[in-house]
């Protein structure tokens, strides 16, 4: 990645930040400005949900953070040194020629680690925990959409990233699988004290999984650049709400956050 990394000794610095970013798509003749002097900072340990309509640049933001989308001026994006970024996409992106177990191990392979029996035991443990005991040897073609996304989450967790980027990873899944994966993801983030950036279209999900909600918008039918309409910390009375989205949804504060977010989305 070609981003400017700053020293972790400066404690006032955030974990990562986008500063006065301007980005557009298209040709010189016809370009569309997505960001114009856009800034966003993420602190270590935050669980940030990003909401917004299609085309407002949510995925672009994640791609910039992951280093997939390059920006002209590296100074506009800064990230603390030695961060490992794990990116979970909307579709599972499992390699069709690898069995489920080997797909889950892909992240570890990318770290240059030799796969040992300990790793294989760990993977088997994940398959058991995710209720896929008999599916390790199956190809992605033989798995349902929910099972494939479970394997994708295993892959991300085994990679053990310090920053998790999740781009609508649970959209299109059934209610039960979605909540199961949300809970597993939150437990991983909580236990390992990771930072999470979660993009979603679902305001309920956004509030349930995060401790900070950012709502993006492009006014005037996408002709204006994207701006932040709402940047709200989320806090529930119960500690367990931070690890279990079902409990979060039942918290008394939930409905007031929901009204706030829905009001911002309606603008």
């Amino acid at each position: 990645m070609n981003q400017n990394r700053f020293s972790s000794k400066d404690r006032k610095m955030e974990l990562l930040g986008i500063y006065n970013l301007s980005k557009s798509y298209g040709t010189e003749a016809k370009s569309e400005v997505v960001f114009d002097n856009f800034s966003l900072e993420i602190n270590q340990g935050e669980k940030v949900s990003i909401l917004g309509a299609s085309g407002c640049g949510k995925t672009t933001l994640l791609n910039i953070i992951a280093g997939i989308d390059k920006i002209a001026d590296p100074q506009k994006f800064r990230i603390k040194t030695n961060q490992r970024i794990g990116y979970m996409f909307q579709n599972d992106r499992l390699l069709p020629w690898r069995r489920a177990r080997n797909n889950a191990l892909l992240g570890l392979e990318m770290l240059g680690k030799k796969i040992t029996t300990d790793h294989l035991s760990k993977v088997s443990g994940y398959f058991q925990r995710f209720q896929m005991n008999h599916d390790e040897e199956k190809y992605p073609k033989e798995l349902s959409g929910g099972m494939r996304q479970k394997v994708a989450l295993m892959r991300t967790m085994l990679y053990d990233p310090s920053i998790l980027l999740l781009d609508e990873p649970f959209s299109g899944l059934d209610y039960h699988t979605k909540h199961f994966l949300e809970k597993e993801m939150l437990q991983f983030v909580h236990e390992k004290e990771r930072t999470m950036i979660f993009v979603t279209h679902d305001p309920i999900e956004a509030i349930a999984v995060a401790n900070r909600v950012v709502v993006l918008s492009r006014r005037s039918h996408n002709s204006e650049p994207t701006e932040i309409l709402l940047d709200e910390p989320i806090s529930f009375t119960s500690d367990r709400a931070g690890r279990d989205p079902v409990i979060a949804r039942t918290e008394p504060e939930f409905s007031s956050y929901e009204k706030l977010v829905l009001g911002a989305l309606a603008e």
């Binding site: 990645m1 997939i68 996409f89 992240g107 990318m110 990679y159």
Partner: peptide
């Protein structure tokens, strides 16, 4: 290209 993007996200 999505699979290539996946590998690039791992810094391949």
């Amino acid at each position: 290209p999505e699979l290539i993007m996946l590998l690039n996200s791992f810094g391949a």
